[in-house]
Computed example of a mutant assay.
Amino acid sequence: MTIKVVRGNPTPEELAAALAVVRARAAAAAAIPPGAPAARDSWSDPARIAAHHLPQPGPVSWGRTFWPG
């Protein structure tokens, strides 16, 4: 693995921290078995959206639009 600093002048500590993050991500990606489904981030999970009920149309639905019930 080769990492090249394109811009700036990082200190040895900053470079070591960046390298540690890159190596940790590479090790985590290598630990996933081939063919396994990719892990989803909870923010992009469609089940998060489906878990909340949307307000039903009606004469008072405007009052429930911004307040979780």
Rank of each mutant, 00 (worst) to 15 (best):
V22K: 08
V22F: 02
V22N: 00
R23S: 07
R23D: 09
R23W: 02
A24Q: 10
A24E: 12
A24G: 11
A24P: 00
A26D: 10
A26R: 14
A26T: 07
A26L: 09
A27I: 07
A27P: 01
A27N: 07
A28C: 02
A28M: 07
A28T: 06
A29L: 10
A30G: 03
A30H: 10
A31R: 01
A31M: 03
I32E: 13
I32A: 11
I32Y: 04
P33E: 09
P33M: 06
P33N: 11
P33W: 11
P34D: 06
P34H: 04
P34M: 01
P34W: 00
G35W: 04
A36H: 13
A36D: 07
A36W: 07
P37W: 02
P37R: 04
A38V: 10
A38M: 11
A38C: 06
A39T: 15
R40V: 15
R40A: 14
R40T: 15
R40M: 15
D41W: 06
D41Q: 10
S42T: 14
S42D: 15
S42G: 06
S42N: 11
W43M: 14
W43E: 15
W43N: 14
S44H: 10
S44N: 14
S44R: 08
S44Y: 10
D45T: 08
D45N: 15
D45I: 04
D45H: 09
P46M: 12
A47N: 13
A47S: 12
A47M: 06
A47T: 09
A47C: 02
R48Y: 05
R48T: 13
R48M: 08
I49K: 15
I49E: 14
I49P: 00
I49Y: 15
I49D: 12
A50T: 12
A50Q: 13
A50F: 04
A50V: 05
A50G: 05
A51K: 05
A51G: 08
A51M: 11
A51L: 09
A51Y: 07
H52S: 09
H52E: 14
H52G: 01
H52N: 10
H53E: 13
H53P: 00
H53V: 01
L54E: 15
L54C: 08
L54S: 08
L54Q: 09
L54D: 14
Q56R: 13
Q56H: 03
Q56Y: 00
Q56N: 02
P57Y: 03
P57I: 05
P57G: 03
P57S: 11
P57E: 13
G58H: 03
G58W: 02
G58D: 06
G58Y: 01
V60H: 04
V60T: 08
V60G: 00
S61D: 08
S61R: 06
S61V: 00
W62I: 02
W62P: 00
W62S: 05
G63T: 05
G63I: 06
G63H: 06
R64P: 00
R64A: 01
R64S: 01
T65A: 11
F66H: 07
F66M: 09
F66N: 10
F66E: 09
